[in-house]
Design a protein around this nucleic acid. Structure first.
Length: 362
DNA sequence: AAACCGGGGAA
DNA sequence: TTCCCAGGTTT
C-alpha cells in the first residue's frame, strides 16, 4: 500500500510547519547542542516515555556519564541506579553495552552509517533515523507515535497502525514527507506538532499549521485517527515476597538474573503463588528455590499493587524469620544482607521501592 | 506477526 | 478504568 500526501503538502510544510516549529519549539536539554551521544541518550530515554519524565533523568545521566567513554567505563549497577524508576530497564543495559561497542568498534565516536548504528544494542529503526537526522543532518525519517498520529490524520489513513505492514507503509510515507526539507528540523517539527498540537485527545486544530491541508480535519473526523485495534485485557499475577531479617536492622535482598524482566535489578526475594498455595507456603518455597533458605514466614508487612505492561502485580510481602543457614545464589544473580540505609545504593524496581517505603515508615 | 518489556500522566 | 507515550528485541 502506498499512501498519498495531500496536495500542496510540501509548500505548506515550508511555509507554515517549519516556521511554526521555529516559533514554538520547546527548550529541551537535549536540544542545546546536537552532540550525537546526547541525542542517542535522549532518544533512548524517550522511548515510550514522556518528555517531562525524561528531563530530570537525562540531566542526571549526562552529569554521571558525560561521554560514551565514561558510560562504557561505568559499572552496570551504577548505570541501573541512574535509570531507576524510568522503566524498561533493558534500555539502560543495552545503552551501556552499546557504549562499549562504540568504544571497541569505533573508538568512542558514534558512527554515522545506518548499518553501523543498527549494529548497536538497543538501537532500532527509530533511533537510527533520529541520530542520523538530528546529529548528522542526514535525510532519514523518524516514525514514532507522534509522527504516526500526524500522518494518519493528515492523510486520513484508517488502517490499524498496530499492524507491522501498516507501520512499513507509514515509514515509507514519512520518508516521502521528509524529502526536500531539512531532515533535523522537519523530523523534530512533526514530533513537536504531535506532542503539543496534534495530541491524541483534544487536538488544537485551530492553531495547527497543517490544518489547511489535513484530510481528517477537512472531514471533521480527526478523532477517528489513528485507528488502533484494542489490546486484550491483561491478567493479574499474585506474588509472595519475604523480608528475611538476620537481626533487628539487617535483611536480605536478591538480585534478579541478568536475562528477563527487570534483569540485574534488586528485589525482595519471592515469586508467583501457585494454584491452591497459601502465600506463606509460596514465600517459603521461593526462598528455598532461589536462595536455599529455610525460613519461618511471619506477619504481613504490606500488599503492593503495581501494573506492568502485560500484567497486574499483586505482591504480598511478609516478614520472615531467618533460621541461620547461609543463603546461596541458586536462582538469582546475587544476594546481600543490608540495612535500609544501604539499600539506597542498589537499583530497585518501582514495586520493590514501595516495599522499602513501607519499611522506612515502620 | 505476535509476544514481551516499566512506569507515569491524563481524562 | 483506559489510553498513550520521541520503541526494541525475541520468538
Amino acid at each position: 500500500m502506498t499512501y498519498r500526501l495531500p496536495k500542496n503538502c510540501l509548500l505548506t510544510v515550508s511555509k507554515d510547519l517549519l516556521p511554526w516549529f521555529e516559533a514554538n519549539a520547546r527548550e529541551l536539554p537535549w536540544r542545546l547542542n546536537r552532540d550525537p551521544y546526547a541525542v542517542w541518550v535522549s532518544e533512548c530515554m524517550l522511548q515510550q516515555t514522556r518528555v517531562e519524565t525524561v528531563i530530570p533523568y537525562f540531566l542526571r545521566w549526562m552529569a554521571c556519564f558525560p561521554t560514551v567513554k565514561a558510560l562504557a567505563a561505568a559499572d552496570q549497577q551504577q548505570v541501573l541506579k541512574c535509570w531507576e524508576g524510568l522503566g524498561y530497564y533493558a534500555r539502560a543495559r543495552n545503552l551501556h553495552a552499546a557504549s562499549k561497542q562504540v568504544v571497541a568498534l569505533f573508538g568512542g565516536e558514534l558512527p554515522s552509517q545506518v548499518d553501523e548504528l543498527s549494529r548497536l544494542k538497543g538501537v532500532g529503526p527509530y533511533t537510527v533515523a533520529a541520530i542520523l537526522s538530528l546529529a548528522f543532518g542526514k535525510s532519514y525519517a523518524v516514525l514514532d507515535g507522534n509522527v504516526e498520529r500526524v500522518l494518519t490524520r493528515l492523510c486520513a489513513i484508517s488502517d490499524d497502525i498496530r499492524k507491522p505492514q501498516v507501520k512499513k507503509d507509514l515509514q515509507n510515507l514519512a520518508t516521502r514527507f521528509l524529502a526536500t526539507h531539512p531532515p533535523a528540523q522537519l523530523n523534530e517539527a512533526v514530533m513537536e506538532l504531535g506532542a503539543t498540537v496534534c495530541t491524541p485527545r483534544n487536538p488544537q486544530c485551530d492553531c495547527c499549521p497543517l490544518a489547511s491541508i489535513c484530510r481528517a480535519h477537512k472531514r471533521g473526523e480527526v478523532s477517528l485517527f489513528p485507528y488502533k485495534s484494542k489490546k486484550p485485557k491483561i491478567p493479574t499475577v499474585q506474588v509472595g515476597a519475604g523480608v528475611v531479617w538476620r537481626d533487628e536492622h539487617t535483611f536480605l535482598i536478591a538480585q534478579r538474573n541478568e536475562s528477563g524482566m527487570l534483569g540485574g535489578m534488586w528485589e525482595f526475594p519471592g515469586g508467583k503463588i501457585e494454584k491452591n498455595e497459601s502465600i506463606e507456603a509460596c514465600i517459603a518455597r521461593e526462598l528455598e528455590e532461589e536462595l536455599g533458605l529455610k525460613v519461618e514466614v511471619g506477619d504481613e508487612l504490606i500488599k503492593v499493587k503495581h501494573t506492568y505492561t502485560h500484567f497486574h502485580l499483586r505482591m504480598g510481602v511478609h516478614h520472615c524469620r531467618w533460621q541461620g543457614d547461609e543463603p546461596e545464589a541458586i536462582d538469582c544473580a546475587d544476594f546481600r544482607w543490608v540495612t535500609l540505609a544501604e539499600c539506597e545504593a542498589y537499583p530497585f524496581s518501582r514495586a520493590d521501592l514501595k516495599v522499602l517505603e513501607a519499611l522506612a515508615s515502620q
